[in-house]
Design a protein around this nucleic acid. Structure first.
Lengths: 117, 117
DNA sequence: ACCAGGAACCATGCAATGCAAGATACTGCC
DNA sequence: GGCAGTATCTTGCATTGCATGGTTCCTGGT
């Protein structure tokens, strides 16, 4: 029940977080906590470890990312996630569907009756 | 199954459909099948009775809408749904949260590293 | 009167996904 | 050895869209 980004934002994240993560990995491999940090940079996308790790596992299981364990300069080893060709394609598919969806919601919010364009 | 608006759009709808319905009711009460038709006008929002009726039941249970049974000129009676003050407030809350969320996704899709503004 | 068909509504069971809470493991410092 | 900090992962749960099927009511043909 956090007020600022509460129930609404939580439901909004469904099905989008996955692609934000893929987008974050577009340029270079990153590890879990790093992704968490970059997501938090945009407050509405802030999420937790309990969300990100199952999500990353699923992405790996479905072949969207490859993983590689690397030693950390200080701490336990980090698992780095890198986009595969399949992951790139999935991201592209989302990038195509998103504007349609976004404009649809904008449409309903601003002009529900659609008559007085 | 529908490929064009398949798994991606389906997940995108989660948590948004509810508010699109509230937006549709903003100006005047409407009944189930009518909402289904207006949603379908924007293809990515197309959904089914199995989605809309449980959703409308929930909106009623939570006090976002009031219902009124009216006779139909031809067919069984129609249950009309009208926005309550609570529903109007929920819609306003969503209308406030949506632009933040929308811009966040746009940000990740277009500039995942966010450094070269 | 009777039956076929369609319009409208609703309930049940399932799948996908985000989340809170907790468990495990590795490193460095004292 | 013990403690703190970083990082990964698992389990159980709540929410929500969806497919399927069933019920009620009206209309039209015979």
């Amino acid at each position: 029940m956090n007020e600022a980004g509460g129930r609404v934002s939580s439901q909004l994240r469904k099905g989008v977080l996955e692609y934000c993560v893929l987008a974050l990995l577009r340029d270079e491999p990153k590890y879990g906590v790093e992704l968490l940090t970059e997501l938090s940079a945009v407050s509405v996308m802030t999420t937790s470890q309990g969300t990100i790790y199952p999500l990353l596992s699923r992405l790996r299981r479905e072949g969207f990312v490859d993983t590689e364990l690397r030693e950390s300069p200080s701490g336990p080893p980090r698992r780095y996630y890198a986009l595969t060709a399949l992951g790139t394609a999935a991201l592209a598919e989302f990038a195509g569907a998103w504007p349609l969806f976004r404009d649809a919601v904008d449409h309903f919010l601003t002009d529900p009756q659609g008559d007085t364009a």
